[in-house]
Design a protein around this nucleic acid. Sequence first.
DNA 1: TCAAAAGTGTTATCCTTACACCCATGT
DNA 2: ACATGGGTGTAAGGATAACACTTTTGA
Lengths: 331, 331
Amino acid sequence: MTQHAHPLPVEIGLTAAIVAVSGAAGDSPEPTILVARPASAISDAALPSGPFDPVAHRTFEIGLRAWVAEQTGVPLGYVEQLYTFGDRGRHAQAGDLDPHVVSVGYLALTRTDTTLTKTPEAAFRPWYAFFPWEDWRAGRPALLDAVLLPRLEAWADEETKAAPAARLSRRERLRILFGTQGGRFDEDSVLERYELIYEAGLVPEARRDGREAAPAPAEDAPLGQPMLNDHRRILATAMGRLRAKMKYRPVIFELMPETFTLTALQRTAEAISGRHLHKQNFRRLVEASAVVEPTGDMSHATGGRPAALFRFRREVLQERPAPGLRVGARV
Amino acid sequence: MTQHAHPLPVEIGLTAAIVAVSGAAGDSPEPTILVARPASAISDAALPSGPFDPVAHRTFEIGLRAWVAEQTGVPLGYVEQLYTFGDRGRHAQAGDLDPHVVSVGYLALTRTDTTLTKTPEAAFRPWYAFFPWEDWRAGRPALLDAVLLPRLEAWADEETKAAPAARLSRRERLRILFGTQGGRFDEDSVLERYELIYEAGLVPEARRDGREAAPAPAEDAPLGQPMLNDHRRILATAMGRLRAKMKYRPVIFELMPETFTLTALQRTAEAISGRHLHKQNFRRLVEASAVVEPTGDMSHATGGRPAALFRFRREVLQERPAPGLRVGARV
DNA sequence: TCAAAAGTGTTATCCTTACACCCATGT
DNA sequence: ACATGGGTGTAAGGATAACACTTTTGA
């Protein structure tokens, strides 16, 4: 009940999931994430991460913006704190890792995904490279039925043979999170799905973490590219948060160019949410919410009939409490 | 881009907003919050807070549960991380406060609000004592029009005289957050409202923080009881999060006794959300969502016709992805 | 002239909100 | 008998989801 009785100093690291959309002006945009060391044969990709210096910077966010600007040159727009991780891996033995590191995860959005001049070893990579099962734009990902679900089902079967769970059964969680057995696939639950997969021991991160190997060896077909430490968990948190946030805040425009066509906006919304959206309903929704206004110009770069260009109406921030794109249509 | 280049040790404090509902079985439940030093003439109330020992505890949550159990004897049910505060007051000068303290805020729910044996100096106090403008159960709080809004309007007027804001104008934020000028009062935006009031310098916390005094001296009619440091901000975060969470997760049952009447459930939902709910719609909603089941027993303690007793159906967790009480009715 | 993409009009359904009335018990 | 709270049926309105077709350009 006392305030900080024993001084137990730890080190604070700020880890950022910096998201951009490549080709947001065009027809096939891809959400990308800034990684420090692009995955190679020898090392996993890592999110950019830096120490927090409480003397130099008054707040985390100021500190974050400072080192990101300094080290990568990427100008951050929207920034939001995600979660603070204090654990050294859920199944690590005491002393396994340095227990004196706490990392505060952040989601940041930027429009710049042009080549980075300052850090050649950092690059924007498509986020679905790390989460292939989250991309449903072209329908149900083949990976799901071919690899992921069979392994998860096997893992769920395991439980039935052993002790029945006190809480939610594995099979029920599978159904709720992946929409098996007639359930819906809720695209916002990125983190929960990753944690299930992690628990099942199907990603290398889990095995690094001291967890027993999964029934099927996952080496031969990695389920998405692994990342350093718990960085993929932070990215999953960021993806889920962005997908959810997009529906009630106009954050998507932080990722769009100044002007854009409605189709480009739809493709970007689809790229982030990982779903295909219904064209007419999307347009009606956008029109009804009055979040954009026509510039009067036309884009002739579309290949077919020229498209009207629009811009974000900043005034909506002052008009409506929740001016997001409440995309809901399944198809 | 490097991982934790310079060791800059800081101390981690865990601060918990521990919520219970007093009289959840009865007709006039009140949401309460555990405070360490009940507000007296000489000192502000404080949320229970303890240090995080990274050696003893693997995760924050384990550490939190440990010291809460040890020091207060309150058994925590649902626990959720809220936010990590790294700043030493938004307007403090460098060196003002110890910059080496970072506090991780938590929301925790408990059913126990019986007298605490272990810590006589801790007590559950109604949360609306700290946020009187958030209680709309008996209609629009008188405090709003009598005290709060006039001062906020004065603060908004100030701006018009000075430079116009680059972003949202004060008046617009007022309208959006407090529902002035025909807007809606969104009960989830507890934190945003508190931050506006704080920015306007209307709470003692803001003045402690080096902010200039508000136009009207706030001493004579304090706007809710102040708290130590930024604890009222943490409580505001907790209230907003609980109000929002209640709508898509069955967290309310963490605050209810094992069996309860539908009216008791409604009164509890009202107590938390701060709104009056429509009886028939609430009941239909509860029935449709199938989150409760009748026990078969009746409660004769109501004063009128006996009421059927219900219990939470834990199975809904396994059936529906978002089994909350989507209360939406205005009246 | 035709491919390729932009853009629109309409209807069915469900969910939300609001309405007013009857019921069972204790005093 | 009557006060007190428990409990229900139904209809209006709006939002959402699904439907297929016309228009305009570049090649």
